[in-house]
Every structure is written in structure tokens, then in C-alpha cells.
Nucleic acid binder design. Sequence first.
DNA 1: AATGAATGAGAATTCATTCAT
DNA 2: AATGAATGAATTCTCATTCAT
Lengths: 199, 199, 199, 199
Amino acid sequence: MATAKQNTKRRQEQIAQATLALVAEHGLAACNVAAVARRVGLVPSALYRHFRNKDHMLDAAVEVIQSKLLDNVRAVCARQTHAIERLHDLLQQHVQLIKKSRGIPQVIFSPDFYVDRPQRRARVCDGIRQYLAAVADMIREGQATGTIRPGLDAETAAVLFLGLVQPSAVLWNLSSGKFNVARHAEKAWPLFVQILTTG
Amino acid sequence: MATAKQNTKRRQEQIAQATLALVAEHGLAACNVAAVARRVGLVPSALYRHFRNKDHMLDAAVEVIQSKLLDNVRAVCARQTHAIERLHDLLQQHVQLIKKSRGIPQVIFSPDFYVDRPQRRARVCDGIRQYLAAVADMIREGQATGTIRPGLDAETAAVLFLGLVQPSAVLWNLSSGKFNVARHAEKAWPLFVQILTTG
Amino acid sequence: MATAKQNTKRRQEQIAQATLALVAEHGLAACNVAAVARRVGLVPSALYRHFRNKDHMLDAAVEVIQSKLLDNVRAVCARQTHAIERLHDLLQQHVQLIKKSRGIPQVIFSPDFYVDRPQRRARVCDGIRQYLAAVADMIREGQATGTIRPGLDAETAAVLFLGLVQPSAVLWNLSSGKFNVARHAEKAWPLFVQILTTG
Amino acid sequence: MATAKQNTKRRQEQIAQATLALVAEHGLAACNVAAVARRVGLVPSALYRHFRNKDHMLDAAVEVIQSKLLDNVRAVCARQTHAIERLHDLLQQHVQLIKKSRGIPQVIFSPDFYVDRPQRRARVCDGIRQYLAAVADMIREGQATGTIRPGLDAETAAVLFLGLVQPSAVLWNLSSGKFNVARHAEKAWPLFVQILTTG
DNA sequence: AATGAATGAGAATTCATTCAT
DNA sequence: AATGAATGAATTCTCATTCAT
């Protein structure tokens, strides 16, 4: 039962990850302090040395998601230069993220996270907007270099890009993993490319 | 305080609606038996004459959503005959449903509804599949009558149809109603038509 | 364990009394919800049907004290007409109250009751002021009828009247009941009469 | 954050004073080990090098009060020789003590200090008895030198002396400092002198 | 069919205290 | 002598549910 002592920085990370994993796997309701503590290998009260209260743990969990999303954007931008390639790569990364950290998008879309918690709502809203803005930027770059047709509204297309993966993520979850997210993405991608290019 | 006695059928409807409204407006966590009872105008213990337990109330709430979605399908099929018109109409109905019964889609996508409740999960999954199947049917009908290009995969396009509205619904919720769902739908619709028609 | 059901009015009284008794006998720190419940013969959570929270229980306990003090005043006024007799009677009632509801005055003087609870502080302060005002009124009546010397400041004498019993109450408590409050009151009373009459 | 190391004797004094100050200012409930440590400028666990446990810290705090009271007695005896002057001086010192170290008397009268702590109770009881004995001695000295009337019971008068200041101390606390303790003492003093002298 | 009292299982949080460093 | 992490007990409060009336 006794775990080796770790410093607060390390523990905070562990707790944030455990919180996120619990919410993703068993839902917000099942994510209680005792369960988080068990997962970290501590006693419930021990968590309060590292976080003021449960709310702060959930905030930290949200941060983890945000950074993963934006990490994807950065990685893709570093890896690809061509706009459409970038978008394709990002789509695949997003799919991987969903499959790896199961349920992360659902966490974001879970209203219970936000009711009576306007700051967190604003925080997440901002994170998604940043993601959308990054996608829109990629599209505009493509327009600038002539690979994407100029008439297209970048913002609308960016939201649609999210729509490429979001419904299938939901289906994947509801079907307990039977729906093939990656395959749907592969099949939907050409349709999206058509929107980007054909006019 | 004393409410006129109502027969069980009527009460069950009231309770299901109250449950749904509460979840939609304040989240699953805020939807407790006492709150539902208050909304119906009864005392908590009174609900147990009409439902075995809270879980059954939530099941009833899910039914309400399902039927609203399928009602939309039926209404649209009755009203429109042209495939693309039908899809356009359905899109608008969906947007209306989201704006009217605020957050209903989020309820469906709320993982807390399903964890450790495989029957409910299956039920909702089935409901969405039916909705998707109906959309795919519309597309196939369009292909049969020549208004939609034959090469298109109906299932993939149906999921994409959901993606037309789902991300914007999330944005609408997160932004506390500032994001304009209807306008996004209007702007995204031509892009979807392009997928349906241009080859 | 199962206790016969009682209506809320009755339960509130029982809870207030149990709370007061606990504080008086074992101190504020020992007065937790579980202990109160045990004393009433209920389960802790049952108390929350009758009181919003522990604070409201403590408020009710304070009310009980207040009313006992003012009941004494009323009873004495009804029983005696002569000012000095009244004061003597009130002194004896006060002594009885202390011995019967052991520690009540200590409750009033316990600072933990008031920290960060300004309303309660004001409430108790008001109660004591009323008691003091009643005593001062008795003194002024004595002055009007000529049994108490006119030069005496009624307010000062009223506070001193409290001083007749308060220190001995403390000593009684600290000495675990060995200090004889009644005897001290008897011996101190002539000294107070001297103040009232001799000029 | 790191505090210079101090020897235990010095630390014990600091801790006792901090404990007392906390109880006096915010009540016994707010006086937890963490708060004491913060006030001293240490970390909670550090206190346990200087005191076996919290109880011993509270005992030390009680000692501080005791010695302050008896210091007053000694100082007054050194300063004044005439009995009545001594008592007047002591009264003023007591009033000063109350105003300076806000709430110290209340600490003494706080039952939570004593419940289930018979040794502490006995200790405080003894301290007050010593104080009372000192006052009674002053009175008897006055009787020996003829400045106080011989018929007066010294013990009863000593308790009454406490009553001169105690109720007003309570009122001062409850009224959040609005009640004027010093003025009441001034006005009550002549009445007490009357008891001491007039027969 | 509806009410109001009661229950019991948890939930979050606080706090004194211990222990390795 | 002092720190920071960890523990375990206690406490307040919430909530689904049962039961007698």
C-alpha cells in the first residue's frame, strides 16, 4: 500500500492522467477521488497535498487533452509542408488520438464537465477554437499556394473537418469499438478533398 | 402541494420529459430524483410508483430522444420527395431540434449515460444506426433517380451528414449559444451537395 | 434502531435540545451530527430532513437558550411585583437554569459559536441585551416606586447583576460541580442589595 | 521558506504564543496545527520536534494565560500598598489584558478546552483559584488595616470582583468591540467600593 | 396515487500525526 | 532542526430508495 514518495510535480501529472483515464473509461460519475487515488497508488487524502480539490484535478485533466490536441497540430506542421498533406496527416493523428486515449473527445463533449463551471467551459471552448483556427490556417495556406480552391470559406471547412471524425468517434464509442474510425476517415477523406479542390 | 392524481401512463410521460429536460439543461449530475420530482410537481418517493428506479427514468428519457429523431425522418419523408430536398429539410429539422431541445444531442453523446449500462448503450447505438440508415436510404434513392452521383458510398456520406451538424452543436453549447448553428449549416450545405453531385 | 416516525416540528425540537445538551455537556467540538443523531435515536442523514445543515441545528439550539432566559424574565415578572423581590427571584431562577441545563451560559460565552458567523453573534448579543434591558427596567421600576435609590445607574447595575452569577457559573463548571453556585448567590445577594439601596 | 533553526526552548514559547493568539482571535476550532505552524513560520510536522502533540501545545498556551494573570497580581502588589488602590489597579490591569490579548478570558471560559481533559481543567481551575485567593488576600489586608469593613466575606467579594469585568468582557466580544469595557469598569468600581466600605 | 419520515451507502474534504530525507 | 509526502480516522452532506399512512 505504501508507495515510494514522489515530488508534487510528478504526482500532479500522475493524478491528471489518472483522472483523465478514469473519465474517459468509466465516465465523469465514476471518476471520484477514491478511484483516482487508487489508480495512482495513494490514499484519497494524499491527493489533497497536490491539488486543492477535485475540481482542480479535473482542470488538470482538461489541460492534458488540450495539449495533446495542440501537440498534434505542431507535429503535423513540422512534418508536412503541403496544405492538403498536412490536413490528411492531422486527420490521421486525430484518429490515432481517439483510438489511443479512448474517449477523449467524449470528455470534451460531456456537458457535465461544464455546468456551473464557466471558466472550464471557456477554457475548453478556447482550446477547440485554437484547433479550428489552426485547421483554417492550413486551408488558407493551401489557398495561397494554389492547392486549395480560393472560393472556399476556410472557417466553414475547418468545422467540417472536425465533422469528418467526430460522428465516427461517437459511433466507435457507442458500438464498443466495433465501428472502424480509421476506415471511415479513409473513406471520407477523398470527399473532403473534393470540397477543398473541386469548385 | 398536493397534485391531482394522474394515471401512470400520463405520469410516465411527464417524468420522462422532465428527466430529459433536466439532463439537457443542467447535465446528468444535476438530474437527481428530487429534481425530477420537483419538475413534475410530485414528491421524490411518488416517482417510484411509476418507475422501478432512476435507471428506468433515464431509459424513458432516451426513448423520447430516439422518437424525436425518427419523427424528424418521417416528417421529412412525408413532406419532400426529392432526395436532396429531403436531406436539406432533415438538416434543418435537426438544427431546429438542437436549438429547441437544447443539448439533446449532447445527451446522446454523454458517455456517463452508457458506462456499465450495456443495454442502454446498445439501444442508443441502434437508434443512431437507424437514423444513419434512413439518411443512407435517402441518398440511395437519390442515386436511383439520378440526382445523386452513383459512385458515392451512401454509408460514408450519411456519417458525414451527421458531421455537418454535430461539431457545430458542440461549439454552440460550449460557446453558450454564441456560435450560430443554423448559419453554419447553411454554409456547409452547399459543400455537402457538392459531394453528393459532383464526381 | 428503527424509531417511530415523528413529524418535523417535533423532530426539530428534539434535535435542537439534543444539540444543546451535547454542546453543554461535552463541548462544541464533540457536538457532531452523528452524536446528535444518536441522541435523538436517528441515523445521521435523517437529520437533514429536518434541518438544512449543522449550522441550522446550532442556531436552533441557541434559540432554545434565548427563550429559556426570556421565559425566566416573564415568569418572574408575573410572580413578583416588588422590584427587589423580582431581582432576587430572577437571580434564583438563573442559578437554577445553570444547574439544570448544565453549561448553558458557557455555550453562550463560547467564542467558537460565533467566529465567522456574524448573524449568530448578533442574535445572541441581542438576546443578552434584552435580558440586560429587562433587568435594568426592573431597577428603574424600583427607583420609580422608591425602593431602589434614585442615583444608581440602572444599566451598570444590570451588568453587575450578571456578574453576580457568571463567575460562579464558570467556577462551578471548572470545578466539576464542586463550587456551590446557589450558596455564592445567596451570599452575594445582600451585597448587591446594598448597592441598590444604600447611597 | 526555510527558517533559521532555533533551540527548542525558544520554539516552545513561540508555539505556545501562536497557539494562544489563534484561539483568542479565531476560536479553538480554527486553531489547528497547520495554522499554528504558519504563524510560527514553520511546517506543521516541524512542531512535533518541540511538542509531543497538539494537546501539549494547548497546555502550553494555557500556561501563558495563567502566568499573565498572576503577573498582573505581582505587578499590582509591587506598585500599590493600599488595599483598595491595589484592587482598583488590578481591575484596570485586567481590563487592559482583555483589550490587549483579545479574548483571553473567553479562552479560559471555553468549555471545549476542558471536556475529556481533566488535568487541564484542574490546572485552569487552580489558576483562577489562585487569582481569587490573591484578591481575597488583598481584601483581608484591607480589613486588617481598617480600610475595608470587617464584616465582609472576602471570598464572596473576590468572586464579585471577577464579576466586575467578566460580563462586560463577554459583551465586548459579542458586540465586536462596541461595548466599552473600560468605561463599564470605571462606573462599576464605585459600586464595588461601596460594598467594600459601607456597612 | 401521493406523502413524509427514515435509511444506508457513498462522496469530498480536513486534520493530527508519522516518517524518510 | 526542518521539510514534504503520505496516512487514516473523522466529519459533513447528498442521494436513491423503502415503507407506513
